[in-house]
């Protein structure tokens, strides 16, 4: 595994606009839930826009991130995963936390694996999960 936090895969994910929320000028669908998570220490901010499906699922999930490349890449991965339900989200978050603690790397998160060695960046990886939990808490 590369030692380099800023590998090509991570930078590509950080720049990946596929799950970016449309500009604020577009009128949002009525059932759109908007949530936000901030890291007051570093100023990273993740906005997520979700449409719920059923009790525990999501139909759509897009983001707007003001933050570092690590946070942007992690948010892209979380949006790409669109966890089918909360149980899957919890499992994914647990896997990512374990990865940051030096455990096995969930395959889709391998571009973020080098972040494990940088304790100050763990919060950047976890911020989109915090936001996503709010979709259910607040939505």
């Amino acid at each position: 595994m590369s030692d380099d936090l800023y590998g090509a895969d991570l930078m590509a994910l950080a720049r990946d606009g596929r799950h970016a929320a449309p500009p604020a000028t577009t009128p949002p669908p009525e059932d759109l839930v908007e949530v936000r998570a901030d890291n007051p220490l570093c100023g990273d901010r993740v906005l997520l826009f979700a449409q719920r499906e059923g009790q525990d699922g999501l139909a759509t999930l897009t983001h707007r991130v003001r933050g570092c490349a690590v946070c942007k890449a992690a948010t892209t991965l979380v949006c790409a995963a669109i966890p089918a339900n909360r149980t899957r989200l919890d499992a994914l978050e647990a896997e990512v936390r374990a990865m940051l603690d030096g455990g096995p790397v969930p395959p889709t998160f391998s571009p973020l694996a080098p972040a494990a060695r940088h304790a100050s960046r763990h919060a950047c990886v976890l911020l989109p999960f915090e936001a996503l939990r709010r979709v259910w808490a607040e939505g």
């Binding site: 936090l5 100023g43 990273d44 933050g67 570092c68 490349a69 690590v70 960046r121 950047c124």
Partner: peptide, 25 residues
Amino acid sequence: AHPHDVCQILDRHGVAARGGHHCCQ
């Protein structure tokens, strides 16, 4: 580029710098 990413790369070169709002939000 975000300042924390810049600082992380500086750290790779042994350079200690600070990135962020510097308590001046």
